[in-house]
Amino acid sequence: MAIVFQKPKTLTDATLHYCPGCTHGIIHTLVAQAIEELGIEGKTIGVAPVGCAVMAYNYFTCDMVEAAHGRAPAVATGLKRALPDNIVFTYQGDGDLAAIGTAETVHSATRGENITVIFVNNAIYGMTGGQMAPTSLPGQITQTTPYGRDTATAGYPVRICEMLSTLDGVAYAERVSVDSVPNIRKARAAIKKAFENQVNKKGFSIVEVLSSCPTNWGLTPVEALDWLRENMIPYYPLGVYKDKTGGDK
């Protein structure tokens, strides 16, 4: 029998703790595939965030460090400066990367740290039970915006790829989505490229992955993907925002 799919060897056998229908599992697989395909597992160190992916250190087979909330890019900077020939990536959610860790994100980017940042944007704080995220959409109902996000008092969502693409230190910024098979294929290519850039010492690479949170959005997994497509993608257009690597696009 021909094998058409198997779990990447760069994922451990630990059972993922994510909710049914959560897309973290897909994104973990894409990251693990990139590491496996590039043959860099032995020299890769991942930095896990605080948020739903806090236990990512149990799922990847490479060496892992658990950072404080928002500090993953600073931890990754320390690792990369100590081990410049290794591959260092962070895996962060929207609260971690775009709220409490904004300074660390912006400054690791502007320094052009040669690291890879995987940014999972699902427009909500998942782990703490569904509060407003910096990327929650205007009008979006969450536990802490029970009447919908009112931009007059809660401000506007942060568009990270657009913002970071203005910085000279950023080599590559692309926004992808995992709502459909074609988009997952594009996401896979983008994540691999973000790791390849680091191997080739191109500098700071970030891939923002639009993701769903059926549990806290109060939707079924399928409805959640529809909501992502209909609401998030218009506000957060997909595509390459910056590419100084001389690659395609």
């Binding site: 160190i45 930095v47 460090v65 950072a67 404080a68 500090r71 600073a74 931890v75 990754a76 900077t77 320390g78 690792l79 990369k80 400066r81 100590a82 081990l83 300074a103 660390e104 912006v106 400054h107």
Partner: peptide, 19 residues
């Protein structure tokens, strides 16, 4: 490395110490 804050600096120390 001149960090963006003392918070970032100590977390860079955490990263380097991990290495």
């Amino acid at each position: 490395l001149q960090a963006e804050s003392e918070i970032a600096a100590i977390n860079m120390v955490l990263g380097a110490a991990s290495a």
